[in-house]
């Protein structure tokens, strides 16, 4: 991503599963020479106190992201479909369990 990376170890993004039943969550980044080292560094840096049961690392340059602009039409398809939400539908109060 940045030009300085050629000077050293590449940048990795780190994702940790806090405990069973939870998704992996992005916790930060680190530099490592290769994937294996990225995993052991991630363990030492982000899980010193049992913060995780599973770690993913991925080279930052391999992540594809949506554009940064909030006004981007990218998210428009979800903005105008109110009928996707349960509150869109009027149901009488006396209908149970719905």
């Amino acid at each position: 991503m940045s030009t300085g990376e050629q000077r050293g170890w590449p940048l990795y993004e780190v994702f940790v599963r806090g405990k069973r039943g939870l998704n992996h969550v992005h916790v930060g980044s680190l530099h490592a020479a290769d994937d294996r080292m990225a995993l052991t560094h991630a363990r030492d840096l982000y899980t010193r106190r049992n913060e995780g049961v599973s770690i993913w690392v991925v080279r930052s340059e391999h992540i594809t992201a949506s554009t940064r602009d909030e006004k981007d039409p990218f998210f428009d398809p979800s903005a105008d479909k109110v009928y996707r939400h349960p509150t869109f539908y009027d149901i009488p109060d006396d209908v149970p369990h719905i």
């Binding site: 940045s2 050293g8 840096l45 010193r48």
Partner: peptide, 24 residues
């Protein structure tokens, strides 16, 4: 002391999200 190293690395990581380069 190991925690302090970790603190430094969390923060360098945050600085890099702004376009800073760690080696620099």
């Amino acid at each position: 002391v190991q925690d302090e190293a970790g603190h430094g690395l969390y923060l360098y990581s945050a600085a890099e999200t702004l376009g800073a380069d760690r080696a620099d």
